[in-house]
Design a protein around this nucleic acid. Structure first.
Lengths: 207, 207
DNA sequence: TCGTGCTGAATGGCTGTTCATTCAGCGAAG
DNA sequence: CTTCGCTGAATGAACAGCCATTCAGCACGA
């Protein structure tokens, strides 16, 4: 049922119902991040969320549905934010700078969520494919469009393939995020965006 | 072919024993690639390898041990090959070119193995950490050393951090590999090395 | 009293691992 | 050359524990 939430009109129930769903999602993100999706038990998620095992199934179809929801929510929001940002800027170089910064800021702001995105969602070709089809390819397209725009404007080299350029940038940022997660040393992720872009824009060759 | 029956009557042991082990590793690579590590049953691996379930445990301690062995073998060989190649070349730029080419050639040569490396081994922080500690960090170091060398020689920009430069290159190559796996369209992976390097060396900005 | 959200013990299927058993092939003895 | 134990690699049915999912009932507000 889609609207399992519509409770009594004048109570604060609105918050109650939604609360549990949110609690489960938050708990699942933490539990999946800590133990890995396949090693996580639904019972663990329920315990951390402070609800009974069965309650999880009042809000989600299955364990996998929880993972999907975590992905959909955050990927959707990220792409929406990206488009919004692009609309406000005209310089292609600056557009890429903002996209990269947002990318790393978002992941750097929530380590558990970052782990789920960088690690757990990639743990099987099945997830990878869905995940790739759902959000990743659109994200790459977003970047590639900015590259084309820059090429048209003459700021980016015209002989490069936009899609490939986009993947290179994404791959570099992705690697920063994965390294950050695995690193014992705690450092800020977001500032790396500029360092990556410096290489991406100007290359490593000495002039 | 399976024909590798016991060769000569007196030298059977080595080859025979090794055969089964190899068969299991090959089968596991395929099964893990197809179904994902966590969704693969030991029984499936055994069936594909043409041995009984129990036989798997004569050669491996556990299901996880199989995955580890697949990783150790191939990562070890890749790093050894990398070092060998570096020893034969002096130009840092050419060194990176060869490393990148080998990286993509190796993965492009065996799709199942590539899936295991790009997807299955990253499916949990536990694997990721071991995997990172075991081979990845050494590989990054290998690249970073070449970068330092290039900086000392004045061919690469001295203001860039070698480790970070290495990660950017690795990330870009890694992304090429992952995309290649997920792509329905069949294309050659290895040629992308030069396209990635063109961006990596010279950047995307128009002169 | 009803209705509703929630509970958590019970269920049932699944799968990694074990181990009692089989048997091919070997060397020794005749 | 033939016979005969013996060895240990290989087998695969059975085990044991795990865990996603269900559902009969509970508590509580209206």
């Amino acid at each position: 049922m889609r609207s399992a939430r519509s409770l009594s009109p004048h109570t604060q129930a609105r918050a109650g119902s939604s609360d549990k769903r949110e609690a489960i999602l938050r708990a699942a993100t933490r539990v999946f991040a800590e133990n890995g999706y396949f090693n996580s038990k639904v019972a663990d998620v329920a315990r951390v969320a402070g609800v009974a095992d069965g309650t999880v199934y009042l809000y989600f179809k299955s364990k996998e549905d929880i993972l999907h929801t975590i992905f959909d929510r955050n990927a959707g929001e990220a792409i929406r934010e990206g488009r919004r940002t692009l609309a406000e800027i005209s310089d292609p170089r600056e557009k890429l700078r903002r996209i990269a910064a947002q990318h790393l800021e978002r992941l750097g702001a929530d380590r558990d969520l970052a782990v789920v995105f960088q690690v757990e969602l990639r743990g099987s070709t099945k997830f990878m494919e869905e995940f790739s089809a759902a959000g990743l390819s659109e994200y790459i397209r977003l970047i590639a469009e900015v590259v084309e725009e820059g090429q048209a404007a003459g700021v980016f080299r015209r002989e490069l393939k936009p899609k490939l350029v986009a993947k290179v940038l994404f791959g570099a940022l992705d690697e920063m995020a994965t390294n950050w997660i695995l690193s014992k040393r705690r450092y800020k992720l977001a500032p790396l965006a500029d360092e990556v872009l410096e290489i991406f824009f100007n290359g490593v060759m000495a002039r």
